[in-house]
């Protein structure tokens, strides 16, 4: 357990903007997902019913377009699941459980959709 919890962690600052415009910046540890950063810090615009298994599309976010090409590439299951989001899928839609945080995402801005369910 010490292996996981005691090690000093690098973080990346992720800004979550809600549908109503509230903005919160959170330092998310490297290796966590953008979804986990939200859940652990009470960002209510992300639900994550399946816990990150790419099964439910309730961690949908709109990624600030400036960051799109820095994100990990989209796999088939995420692409398929994004076709079932409760709010419209846009060209900058991603599932935040599939966005693993690393140094290259320091400064990332995501917006949560009007509804996830």
């Amino acid at each position: 357990m010490a292996l996981f919890s005691k090690k000093p962690q690098e973080t990346a600052r992720i800004t979550y903007i809600s549908d109503s415009g509230d903005s919160r910046a959170i330092d998310v540890p490297d290796g966590d997902s953008v979804m986990e950063g939200a859940i652990k810090n009470g960002i209510d615009g992300i639900v994550a019913e399946c816990g990150g298994a790419c099964m439910c599309a309730t961690c949908h976010v709109y990624v600030d377009p400036a960051w799109l090409d820095k994100l990990p590439p989209m796999q088939n299951d995420e692409d398929a699941m994004l076709d079932s989001t409760a709010s419209d899928r846009l060209p900058n839609s991603r599932l935040s459980c599939q966005l693993r945080v690393s140094k290259t995402l320091d400064g990332l801005i995501v917006r949560t959709p009007p509804t996830q369910q």
Partner: peptide, 30 residues
């Protein structure tokens, strides 16, 4: 907490058990 990771990522040693928590304690207070 969530149960699905218990037989998979957690058992494999890929995730600490606290990561299965649905929300942190502060969420419930808030």
């Amino acid at each position: 907490y969530q149960r699905p990771p218990l037989s998979k990522e957690f058992l494999l040693g890929k995730m600490p058990v606290e990561k299965a928590d649905l929300r942190p304690r502060a969420f419930y207070d808030q």
